Computed example of a mutant assay.
Amino acid sequence: MTLDVNELVQSACKKAGADDFGEGAWHEGLERLVDALNTEAALNEAGVTFAARDLRQQLVNRLHIVAYRNANPQVAEADITPPVVIVGHGRTGTTILHDLMAQDPISRSPLTWEVERPFPPPETATYDSDPRIDAVEARLAAVDRALPALRGMHLMGARNGQECVCITSSDFRSTLFGTQYRVPSYVKWLLDDADMAPAYRWHRQFLQHLAARHPAQRWVLKSPGHIWSLGALLDEYPEALLIQTHRDPLRTIASTASMFATLQGTTSDSTDMREIAAEWADYIFDGLDRSVSARRDGTVPADRVVDIHFGQFMAEPFGTVRSVYERLGLDFTPDIEGRMRTFLAENPQNKHGGHRYTFAATGLDEGEFRERARGYQDYFDVPSEALQ
């Protein structure tokens, strides 16, 4: 059983009752992704079913968003206030930082439920009681039952902040697909050759759609995917304020490989942890090198970015967030800190058992990769951590 682009598109149009997908760049990404899924991912039967359902839903979401925008042209006029964007690699504290900053009443993060099910646009009056919240919670509960280890690796919830890679998934330019499936040809195209400008234009349209009936004063966004395309991000949002999180890359690689092996193990019966680690080590270092270059050549202006080191953040989360607010010129009030403290108390780091992993399990040579990390670690003064 294989996936077919035409069948996916036709069935999505039928389900949505529409056929206008907006800007056409999405089609190349879908074609490349489907080809990689058919030829590289070694999908099992459940994997094919899951991928087909996921891709079809992404297409349906896109059709609905474009149709709503066409019927309500004022949506396209909505201004997106320069967002705060967390751009660190995954496994560096981005999720908890994102969730803490989302406790600020002035800030709004795209929540999991509204990103998964964006149509119709959420409304202020029912934002906390929309029936889609319970529907998404039920889906996440099913994931938890099937993959109990995942919840200890990554905080999930319908009301938790969602990553931008889940928004650009419906433009089919997203590293998210490379985490769920082994699709190296697609990821290499995405990182090296794909024009990311359409993805960020779609990203803006998605935020405008979410804000159509529930306006946002300030968006707080995050995604590890931004690290590879900082120029395209800032071309679309030139006044954005960036936060880059930093951690020993060898710890990042080990944690990432462990998590992705867990994810891919549900859709393929031939998952290889060491293969995943080798593949993603290259991607991770490429992203880190690009972030260094972006600082050196001025793509990311020094006055528009603040750096956070993982160890310091974990040791002093509220002091770190306070310093971020000060650097970005934002107000950090006692009320905001109180909300953040309540959230962290209700969601401690090891609430669901934590994430256990080792660098040894990656099969990578510590000395070789420590040397490879030197340029990034020296530039951002990132300390090495003890490895297992």
Results as ranks from 00 to 15, higher is better:
Ser258Asp: 15
Ser258Arg: 14
Ser258Met: 10
Ser258Lys: 14
Ser258Pro: 02
Met259Glu: 03
Met259Trp: 03
Phe260Glu: 06
Phe260Ala: 00
Phe260Ile: 15
Phe260Ser: 01
Phe260Lys: 00
Ala261Ser: 15
Thr262His: 06
Thr262Asn: 08
Leu263Ser: 10
Leu263Lys: 14
Gln264Asn: 10
Gln264Met: 13
Gln264Ser: 12
Gly265Pro: 06
Gly265Asn: 07
Thr267Leu: 13
Thr267Pro: 06
Thr267Phe: 11
Thr267Asp: 08
Thr267Gly: 09
Thr267Lys: 10
Ser268Gln: 04
Ser268Pro: 02
Asp269Arg: 00
Asp269Thr: 01
Asp269Lys: 02
Ser270Arg: 06
Ser270Ala: 11
Ser270Glu: 09
Thr271Asp: 03
Thr271Leu: 05
Thr271Ser: 09
Thr271Arg: 04
Met273Gly: 06
Met273Leu: 15
Met273Ser: 09
Arg274Lys: 15
Arg274Ala: 07
Arg274Pro: 08
Glu275Phe: 08
Glu275Asn: 13
Ile276Asp: 15
Ile276Gly: 12
Ala277Leu: 05
Ala277Glu: 07
Ala277Met: 07
Ala278Ser: 13
Ala278Glu: 08
Ala278Gly: 03
Glu279Thr: 15
Glu279Val: 01
Trp280Gly: 00
Trp280Arg: 04
Trp280Asp: 07
Ala281Tyr: 11
Ala281Pro: 06
Ala281Gln: 05
Asp282Lys: 05
Asp282Ala: 04
Asp282Gln: 11
Asp282Pro: 00
Tyr283Trp: 10
Tyr283Thr: 06
Ile284Cys: 08
Phe285Ala: 05
Phe285Cys: 07
Asp286Gly: 03
Asp286Ser: 03
Gly287Trp: 05
Gly287Arg: 03
Leu288Asn: 04
Leu288Asp: 06
Leu288Ser: 07
Leu288Met: 10
Leu288Gln: 08
Asp289Tyr: 10
Asp289Thr: 03
Asp289Val: 02
Asp289Cys: 04
Asp289Pro: 05
Asp289Ser: 12
Asp289Arg: 05
Arg290Ala: 10
Arg290Leu: 10
Arg290Ile: 04
Arg290Val: 01
Ser291Lys: 02
Ser291Glu: 05
Val292Ala: 09
Val292His: 11
